[in-house]
């Protein structure tokens, strides 16, 4: 039976509230976001660059009043920077400070492995927070395979085991969003623990809404022309199709340049905002007959 959730009460509620915070989600995105909250499962979002994967996590945080804890993944990320680390320097100071006292070794030992000397990193921070939290693990595909193993305990049981202190379980389960550009296939184990959402370029109507909501100064008619041009560009065989972020940038450019009409000349003058390969630009010029 549908149960009230701490995050969203229904798919429609998710769509409406995300829209309020400036994120126009399509029905599938809204349904999946609702499910992630209702089932308390991590959400893995995959898709090309610049379609709003990270933005989704931010929007969920904004709209539910939760705080965002972000772990940016990169090659070489390790336990010490993802989970926790002992503050060696402080521990050393503590040992030296107690040198003159008649404390036994075991007392000192118990003393230096306590909360005071623990440096929490994003994953542990998110787990220990008592307020509603959105945990964003950005670009998971950039990490090494070993780090995925590290994530497993956090993603399935929402707990972190620290050998010296024991297991820290989540006081309140965070809303976890993982994003990936699919440059690497994630392991089955990670995928099994997550809900999956593939974000793609939106249809013309939605994209126009997004552009208009992000750049309110843009003329309605120019917005229509811009979205039409973008969707024509995406149909070409390009190395990198323009993303939503780039359409928004383009809209901002047009506003800044005070271009009131997106004709061929305006398109070819500002093409660099959306297409970032020489061959792509040449192709667009040829196919759209911009300079004939």
């Amino acid at each position: 039976m549908p149960q009230p959730s701490t995050w969203f009460s229904s798919p429609d509620d998710a769509a409406a509230r995300l829209a309020e915070s400036g994120y126009l989600a399509d029905p599938t995105t809204a349904t999946t976001a609702y499910l992630a909250g209702a089932l308390e499962k991590p959400l893995l979002v995959e898709g090309p660059a610049g379609v709003g994967k990270t933005e989704l996590a931010k929007a969920v945080a904004r709209t539910t009043g939760a705080d965002l804890v972000r772990l940016q993944c990169y090659e070489g990320l390790d336990e010490a920077r993802a989970l926790y680390e002992w503050n060696y320097k402080k521990q050393l100071l503590r040992i030296q400070a107690s040198h003159g006292d008649d404390q036994t070794w075991s007392e000192t030992h118990d003393d230096i492995f306590t909360d005071e000397f623990l440096l929490t990193r994003p994953l542990l921070t998110a787990i220990r927070r008592e307020e509603p939290t959105v945990l964003l693990i950005d670009e998971v595909d950039k990490t090494d395979v070993e780090v995925e193993g590290l994530l497993l305990e956090v993603l399935s049981d929402f707990q972190v085991t620290i050998p010296e202190m024991g297991t820290v379980s989540a006081v309140r389960r965070p809303f976890v969003v993982l994003t990936s550009n699919a440059t690497r296939e994630l392991s089955e184990a990670v995928k099994r623990r997550c809900l999956y959402l593939h974000l793609d370029y939106p249809d013309a109507e939605r994209e126009r809404e997004i552009v208009v909501s992000q750049v309110p100064d843009l003329d309605e008619r120019v917005a229509g022309q811009l979205v039409a041009t973008i969707s024509r560009l995406r149909e070409l065989d390009l190395k990198k199709a323009p993303s939503i972020a780039e359409s928004v940038d383009w809209a901002r450019t047009l506003v800044a340049l005070e271009i009131g009409e997106l004709d061929d000349k305006a398109v070819s003058d500002t093409l660099g905002v959306v297409l970032k390969h020489v061959s792509d630009q040449a192709r667009a010029v040829k196919e759209l007959r911009l300079r004939s």
Binding site: P2, K191, L195
Partner: peptide
């Protein structure tokens, strides 16, 4: 679990529920 949390009045919602939980490769 996903289906229990969703309403079944829309086929698309059921579809999305299944897709989110079962298909992990585009």
């Amino acid at each position: 679990a996903a289906l229990s949390a969703l309403d079944w009045d829309d086929r698309r919602v059921v579809h999305d529920g299944y897709a989110a939980t079962l298909v992990k490769k585009q």
